[in-house]
């Protein structure tokens, strides 16, 4: 498991190779057909939801539904929020788990990891490149829902100033800003899951195992969060602050709550990022 030497003269080409590696990783992640299908699937959620709500808006079921679904027919902006709300428990963790669980284990399974290690880039940096790829995919996944959501929402129901959960109506510009903040917050809420996926990905050469473990982590956290008996550990669970994006739809968002949510993600990133680094830089790579 000898690591690639970096003698001082090779420092300059190393930087170039790191950039090249990032570029090729992004091309790999965003160009892979499976990942594109996943993004397409996520993008279909707001489209389908919008269509269904559009077709049923003159029936007695108009304005009903869990979470924000009931508000969509009144304002297309809520299609973004409703779609994110519906994707958060399962679909979003699933797609992100697939992408991040595949990051290292996929290369190992395909037998390309050892060739990747011959690139004059340290293993730590290679892992960072893989993390950039997985994070980019996570961002793309959330953006796919948001962009299709706002376009479909505007087309089906029109956009207007949003009525907050507190009953106050704010202007369209303010509303769009708030929805954008919701999207960014949901995106940042996925970083912990990406770190978990990356760690599982370094543990195994079977990508499906890493993907499944990642998705299971998110789901188990979600289930444990529901149990009142575990209230003491709930604030440490990965999913605990995921729904706090609703803060942006309150009269005065509580930045303390949002900060807690981001700090929690940072904590999971720190721990699982460090675990992934330790594992990846000490592992024997044979395939």
């Amino acid at each position: 498991m000898s690591l690639v030497e970096t003698a001082p003269p090779t420092v300059r080409p190393l930087r170039g190779s790191l950039l090249r590696l990032v570029r090729s990783e992004l091309r790999l992640v965003l160009g892979r057909r499976r990942n594109l299908v996943l993004l397409l699937g996520l993008a279909l959620v707001p489209l389908l939801l919008g269509t269904v709500l559009f077709l049923s808006q003159d029936t007695a079921l108009d304005g009903q539904g869990p979470g924000f679904v009931g508000r969509v027919t009144g304002n297309g902006l809520f299609l973004v929020v409703a779609s994110l709300f519906l994707c958060l428990p399962f679909l979003l963790p699933l797609t992100i788990g697939i992408a991040s669980g595949d990051a290292v284990a996929g290369e190992a399974a395909a037998g390309t990891l050892r060739y990747l290690l011959t690139v004059p880039v340290a293993r730590g940096r290679l892992l960072a490149v893989k993390a950039v790829g997985a994070l980019t995919f996570a961002a793309a996944a959330v953006a796919a829902i948001a962009v299709v959501g706002i376009v479909a929402g505007a087309a089906f129901f029109g956009l207007r100033g949003i009525t907050l959960l507190s009953g106050t109506t704010v202007s369209l510009g303010d509303g769009i800003l708030r929805i954008a903040a919701v999207v960014v917050y949901v995106g940042l809420s996925m970083t912990g899951l990406v770190a978990v996926g990356l760690f599982f990905s370094t543990l195994t050469e079977v990508p499906v195992g890493a993907m499944a473990a990642t998705v299971v982590t998110a789901i188990v956290c979600g289930v444990l969060d529901q149990l009142p008996q575990l209230a003491t550990i709930a604030p440490a669970l990965l999913t605990h602050h995921w729904l706090d994006f609703a803060e942006f739809l309150r009269l005065e968002p509580d930045w303390g709550v949002l900060g807690q949510g981001l700090a929690l993600q940072a904590a999971w990133v720190a721990i699982f990022g460090a675990l992934a680094w330790s594992r990846f830089t000490t592992a024997d790579v044979s395939s």
């Binding site: 970096t6 721990i271 460090a274 675990l275 680094w277 330790s278 830089t281 000490t282």
Partner: peptide
Amino acid sequence: MNESRRTLSPRARWAVPAVAAVAVG
């Protein structure tokens, strides 16, 4: 930084997540 990490033993590398966990805690 890259240079110094390169010299870490595997055991020292595994200490990093432990330290991270303690710091977070």
